[in-house]
Amino acid sequence: MKFTTAALSLLATTLSLAAPTTTSSTTKLSTRQDPTYTGFFLPSIIKTHNVVTGVNTVASNIITSRFDNTENSTLYQIAIPDSAAGRTCHLVLRANQEVSDIVTGTQALDVFRSSFADLFQLNAGNQRDVQLARMRFDESTGLYAFDKTDFPNPAVESFPCPAGLSVRWETVAVGDLDVNVVRQDSVASGGVVPNGLSVGWW
């Protein structure tokens, strides 16, 4: 686990205070085997959301963190093309600590639906809606798995692809100390899981 004081100090300049999301002491991660993906849909835009000021900033990294009285969440907009009609979709989140990603503390994320119409135009606010899942980092795979103890029925583990529409999500830190700084890939290569958040489909 990579944990650097310098990196956390840098993050602290952009984060803001919020009440912690609670977590249970026991964890049951999803043991579901991932399918053979046809491909992945990537965010057309992500923005870092400062929870106290409400300001959104276009980003190339996922910054979903809470520490030292600071907090950021991350907003995503992902277009699902018409070609995905009748297919199954699955939220995928991957981090690579061997390169530059930082995952420490609780090592978890809550996923919420957001009700904004267009993230490109959303310069403030997150418009958080219902919770869809809780995910925890698995160091052995580099993937975040669905935590079915804290959130038994994740709505984004397997769902009909909303062809021709966009999904709009927010990832939120869990607990008092939770740092997830993950490079977001902008291009996917076939069935290879990209870094960051994506929608896998088959």
Rank of each mutant, 00 (worst) to 15 (best):
K2E: 10
T4M: 05
T5D: 10
A7L: 11
L10T: 13
A12R: 14
A12K: 14
T13I: 12
L17F: 12
A18N: 12
T23G: 00
T26C: 07
T26V: 13
T27N: 05
S30P: 00
G39H: 08
F40M: 09
F41T: 02
S44E: 14
T48I: 14
N50W: 10
V51G: 02
V55P: 00
N56G: 09
N56H: 09
A59T: 03
S60C: 04
I62M: 07
I62D: 02
S65I: 09
R66N: 06
R66Y: 05
N69E: 15
T74F: 02
T74E: 05
L75E: 01
I78V: 11
P81D: 01
S83G: 00
A84V: 00
A85L: 11
L91A: 02
L93S: 00
A95D: 08
N96C: 04
Q97H: 02
I102L: 13
V103G: 10
V103Q: 11
T106N: 11
T106C: 07
Q107H: 06
Q107F: 02
Q107I: 04
Q107T: 12
L109W: 09
D110V: 00
F112P: 07
R113M: 06
R113L: 08
A117F: 02
D118S: 06
L119T: 09
Q121L: 15
G125I: 11
N126K: 09
N126L: 05
V130R: 14
V130E: 15
R134K: 13
R134P: 04
M135G: 03
M135S: 03
M135Q: 10
F137Y: 13
D138G: 00
L143C: 00
L143Q: 04
Y144M: 06
K148N: 13
T149W: 06
D150A: 14
N153Y: 13
A155K: 12
V156C: 04
V156S: 02
E157K: 04
P160M: 06
C161R: 08
G164V: 01
G164D: 01
L165A: 11
V167S: 03
R168T: 05
V172M: 08
G175F: 03
D176K: 11
D178Q: 10
D178E: 10
V182W: 01
R183K: 07
V187Y: 15
G190T: 13
G190R: 14
G191W: 08
V192E: 14
V193I: 15
V193K: 11
V193S: 07
P194F: 08
S198Q: 09
V199H: 01
G200W: 03
W201S: 06
W201H: 12
